[in-house]
């Protein structure tokens, strides 16, 4: 065993010099590490990132864990650092878990930043946000109140209990409800993990436990089909509306059947594009302006220097009427 390690060490000493020389001629590399691969949302971000890479002249690497496991995500980031990728963006699964790799990246002069899900106090270079966590939490509550009124009971079904971005959104939902709509009753959030089946089971139980429930919020995009389906099977279309953060493609049939009233989302492809663009800016050493002109974006992208947040813009609300205009 040790012999092999020694051999690897010896070879490494030789190859280190060669590899650094080889890297210099390559295009700069920007990586994005999603929370989970194999789901439409992050696939769309990958597509946007690829488009940006082509237009901006960088290499784009997309690699993420197959389970929502922070250690697996950490391992992927660490390997990207070892590879000498110039800028690495992470949709953080668990805000405090990336601390060890932030240091490692700094030591190697690699730009590590967050995108889609933040780790505020980790020392990351910038956070490319789809919208503020506050904006997302508030929008869903405001939109729901428009539809079911202030005097309503609302259930929350989330994915993994450990996902820090989802928990932040839930936190702002609760804050908004207690601050602005004192009569609104948000039930304790329930966690379905990553499966639609569990989400459906829990939503069904929630509706049985609260016959007066007016709406159920599907917080993780993986829970959207389950929540919608539970409303359909329970025959509660019309009396209970589903809502959540899901892509138009996932939610289309539920929006049309009436199981879902609306979904709140941004264009993940645009977010992917912006992520790669931000990576390129960081590599080039260009500072972000208060308003940035990004190729392909109609509106300038704002940058909050105090919080270090680059903001995609306000989230979009998709309903049965406008959903067919979108394909992601």
């Amino acid at each position: 065993m040790l012999k092999h390690i020694r051999k690897a060490l010896a070879i490494s000493a030789l190859s280190l010099a060669v590899s650094t020389a080889a890297f210099a001629q390559d295009k700069p590399k920007v990586a994005f590490v999603p929370q989970l691969i194999g789901i439409p949302y992050f696939n769309a971000m990958e597509a946007g990132g690829n488009r940006a890479a082509k237009e901006l002249g960088v290499d784009f690497i997309y690699s993420g864990p197959v389970d929502t496991n922070p250690v697996d995500q950490l391992q992927i980031v660490q390997n990207l650092i070892d590879q000498g990728v110039n800028a690495i963006s992470v949709s953080v699964l668990d805000a405090s878990s990336i601390a060890p790799v932030v240091e490692a990246a700094k030591a190697k002069g690699i730009k590590l930043f967050t995108s889609d899900s933040d780790a505020p106090d980790s020392g990351r270079a910038v956070y490319v946000a789809q919208a503020t966590d506050e904006g997302l939490g508030n929008t869903i509550i405001d939109e729901l109140v428009k539809r079911v009124g202030e005097d309503a009971k609302i259930g929350i079904v989330s994915g993994e209990a450990t996902a820090s971005n989802l928990n932040a959104w839930i936190g702002f939902m609760q804050k908004q409800a207690s601050a602005k709509y004192p009569k609104l009753k948000l039930l304790e959030p329930q966690y379905a993990g990553g499966t639609a089946e569990r989400a459906a089971q829990i939503s069904g139980d929630l509706m049985a436990a609260n016959p007066d429930i007016k709406a159920i919020i599907a917080v993780a995009s993986t829970t959207c089909p389950g929540v919608a389906q539970a409303i359909e099977t329970a025959g509660k279309i019309g009396s209970v509306i589903g809502a959540g953060y899901c892509s138009p493609n996932t939610a289309r049939s539920y929006l049309k059947s009436g199981a879902f009233g609306f979904t709140v989302l941004w264009d993940p492809a645009q977010l992917g594009y912006l992520t790669v663009w931000a990576g390129k800016q960081l590599i080039d050493g260009k500072a972000f302006e208060a308003e940035n002109k990004v190729p392909g974006f109609d509106n300038p992208v704002t940058y909050d220097a105090a919080k270090g947040i680059l903001l995609l813009g306000p989230p979009a609300v998709f309903t049965a009427e406008n959903v067919d205009k979108f394909d992601f």
Binding site: T195, A196, P225, Q229
Partner: peptide, 8 residues
Amino acid sequence: NYRNVEMT
């Protein structure tokens, strides 16, 4: 039941 197939 779910008219949906996800990877999980």
